[in-house]
């Protein structure tokens, strides 16, 4: 802070005794930039977990630490994975519980660093509903909140609403984000993300699933008006973008169709083998 303030003042005061009131616009801008850094309190809105760029329209501020985000809709699991992805790229760990069928490959394709995924799975000899009793679940979730920056919960988590409330209260001071993939009973969400999907690429007996247009709608307590966007998740080239991003902007990265692209990428390999 000291270094910042001196650099701000020095060009003015060292100017051969010019009056201090003549502060140039640039310095004013820098002073304004300092205000949030000098403010004594950290606003809740500033303690956020960043999200993928494609979600910038619907979640411009990222996920607030200590909050609970519920994902519903046809593409609930994929949406939950996408919400978590950016945080793992920045070194956060993700704890997973109640999602015994999590597709790790899909998680990787959504951008999650799979190395930073720790899952609690159900004991093999019990039915899904009777995984653990309520008290043990409470302890498990508390331990996950203490240890992981993001906790991803699935429908197999079975807790009473009172336990869920305690868990959510614990997440507040710790700053962990709870992400619910699908309906998880007992939890109340600060933010609801509804994701519906339209698949492309599959024909009548031919083709395969290649791209998905995902309609995302975010509403919740702090979102006065639902925010909507449509994503390519994935796009034909495997990337994740918002469809509102003009195709001109994304075209330099994928100048050719996927089919041509793959042929081109194969050619050098064949050459190398031949040599």
């Amino acid at each position: 802070m000291v270094a910042g303030s001196t650099s701000l003042v020095s060009p003015v005061s060292s100017g051969r005794g010019r009056p201090l009131r003549v502060v140039d616009a640039d310095a004013r801008a820098r002073l304004a930039a300092l205000v949030p850094r000098l403010a004594p309190a950290t606003m809740a809105a500033e303690r956020v977990v960043p999200v993928h760029d494609a979600l910038a329209t619907v979640l411009p501020q990222g996920l607030m630490q200590g909050s609970t985000v519920g994902c519903t809709g046809e593409a609930a699991t994929s949406a939950a994975l996408l919400l978590v992805a950016e945080a793992t790229q920045r070194g956060a760990w993700v704890g997973v519980a109640g999602l015994s069928g999590l597709g790790v490959q899909a998680a990787g394709e959504a951008g999650i660093d799979v190395e930073r995924l720790v899952a609690v799975r159900r004991p093999p000899d019990r039915s899904p509903g009777l995984l653990l009793d309520d008290g043990t679940w409470g302890q498990v979730l508390a331990a996950m909140i203490d240890g992981f920056d993001v906790v991803l919960l699935g429908p197999e988590v079975q807790v009473r609403p009172s336990t869920a409330r305690r868990v959510q209260a614990r997440a507040q001071p710790r700053g962990a984000v709870l992400v619910l993939a699908g309906e998880v009973p007992g939890f109340t969400c600060d933010l609801q993300v509804r994701a519906d999907a339209v698949w492309e690429g599959l024909g009548d007996g031919h083709g395969h699933l290649r791209a998905r247009r995902m309609r995302v709608e975010v509403h919740g307590r702090r979102v006065p008006r639902p925010r909507r966007d449509e994503l390519w998740f994935p796009a034909l080239d495997g990337g994740i973008t918002s469809t509102s991003v003009t195709s001109a902007a994304s075209s330099p990265t994928s100048p050719t169709s996927p089919a041509e692209d793959s042929r081109e990428s194969l050619a050098p390999v064949a050459l190398e083998r031949a040599v």
Binding site: W93, L117, V118, A119, V120, P123, T136, V140, G147, F148
Partner: peptide
């Protein structure tokens, strides 16, 4: 974060069993 995660994994293994905390 790595240290915390490691501690959490150890704690979870104590709660639900070694085999159930997986990567």
């Amino acid at each position: 974060a790595d240290d915390w995660a490691q501690r959490a994994a150890t704690r979870l293994a104590g709660l639900v069993g070694d085999e159930q905390v997986v990567v």
